[in-house]
């Protein structure tokens, strides 16, 4: 499994890739429709936060829900300006 020591040996880009590959199926299980976008949003957070989410389903779920709210607010703003 994914440990901080494994991550520290990889380049920053590779670290995000490794975290993304593990987060994506979990995000997809919670929110199937926007999982690519939500995973991308989560990957902008600190790696330590991402590792915590991988170990804590409640943390991941609440962050995914927050991402959905942020996306919906953003999309609502987009359409109101068109």
């Amino acid at each position: 499994d994914l440990k901080a020591t494994v991550l520290s040996a990889a380049s920053p880009g590779e670290q995000k890739e490794m975290l993304g590959e593990r987060l994506f199926p979990l995000v997809q299980a919670i929110q199937p429709t926007m999982s690519n976008k939500i995973t991308g949003m989560l990957l902008e957070l600190e790696n330590s936060e991402l590792l915590h989410m991988l170990e804590s389903p409640e943390s991941l779920r609440s962050m995914v829900e927050e991402a959905v709210e942020v996306l919906q607010a953003h999309q609502a703003m987009d359409t109101s300006y068109k």
């Binding site: 890739e17 590959e21 994506f24 690519n36 976008k37 995973t39 991308g40 949003m41 990957l43 942020v70």
Partner: peptide
């Protein structure tokens, strides 16, 4: 509460799904 999440973030496309080996 202000969110730290950025709605303009780049989408993540997993290698394992995009290119099955």
């Amino acid at each position: 509460r202000k969110s730290t999440l950025n709605p303009n973030a780049k989408e993540f496309n997993p290698r394992s799904y995009a290119q099955p080996k």
